[in-house]
């Protein structure tokens, strides 16, 4: 587009939105028929317009656990607001209660993966396995874990603070099997582990995370 064509840009825009005046339209159409640059620009923009209108993936499904995660963070928010009144402004920073799980480590879903998993070790004599679970939640005073392996004990097993701020951990000794679980924050709020490899609705309106502990490497 040559410099003198700049004024046609505005006309083109109004042309495309159907807001152009008749005189201007005649002017533009005449120009487009004469100026190959402008006509190409016009064709390109119509092409872009068409591609945008027919774009197939306009809406993208969020992960199924996102809603739970959002609602849990709002629950955390309420607590923090209360803390805000009683304590300090820093509570606000803590509101960024973004759940991050480091891992339910390793080979859990893959019995055929390479030998000697990094964390989970088998104790042949008792038939139980050790699983390390991490949970990131800086805005908690206490975190425990409960689930099928504790018979859903309302108190759960307390998790320990790691060296890293906001990161909690626990070593579980469990028999091979499939276990639903939740974390308990401050002894009150049950939340799923959003980064666990498997999630399933708990039927009560919330979500459970699933811990898979396969039997030893029986093929």
């Amino acid at each position: 587009m040559r410099r003198k064509c700049t004024r046609y840009e505005g006309l083109m825009e109004r042309y495309l939105t159907g807001e152009i005046l008749p005189d201007e339209r005649d002017d533009l159409e005449k120009h487009l028929s004469l100026c190959p640059d402008c006509s190409r620009v016009y064709r390109d923009i119509s092409g872009v317009e068409c591609a945008l209108r027919t774009f197939p993936g306009k809406m993208v499904d969020p992960p199924p656990y996102l809603k739970t995660r959002i609602l849990a963070s709002i629950e955390g928010e309420r607590k923090s607001l209360w803390a805000f009144l009683t304590r300090t402004v820093t509570a606000f920073a803590a509101i960024l209660a973004i759940f991050l799980i480091m891992a339910v480590y390793g080979y859990l879903t893959r019995p055929s993966s390479p030998p000697s998993p990094p964390v989970a070790g088998e104790k042949a004599e008792t038939g139980t396995k050790e699983v390390k679970i991490f949970f990131y939640f800086p805005d908690a005073r206490t975190v425990s874990i409960t689930g099928d392996f504790t018979n859903w004990d309302p108190k759960g097993l307390p998790m320990k603070k790691t060296g890293k701020k906001g990161l909690w951990e626990i070593d579980l000794k469990v028999k091979p099997g499939v276990y639903s679980y939740n974390f308990i924050i401050d002894g009150r709020l049950l939340v799923p582990d959003p980064q666990a490899p498997e999630q399933t609705p708990d039927g009560f309106g919330g979500m459970n995370s699933i811990l898979l502990v396969p039997k030893g490497d029986v093929s």
């Binding site: 409960t146 689930g147 099928d148 018979n151 859903w152 004990d153 309302p154 639903s180 939740n182 049950l190 708990d202 039927g203 009560f204 919330g206 459970n208």
Partner: peptide, 18 residues
Amino acid sequence: PVFRKVREGMAKGVPPGK
């Protein structure tokens, strides 16, 4: 699993009927 489901509901404070 049925026992555990009941206990889960209890831990989550769900009303008995539900």
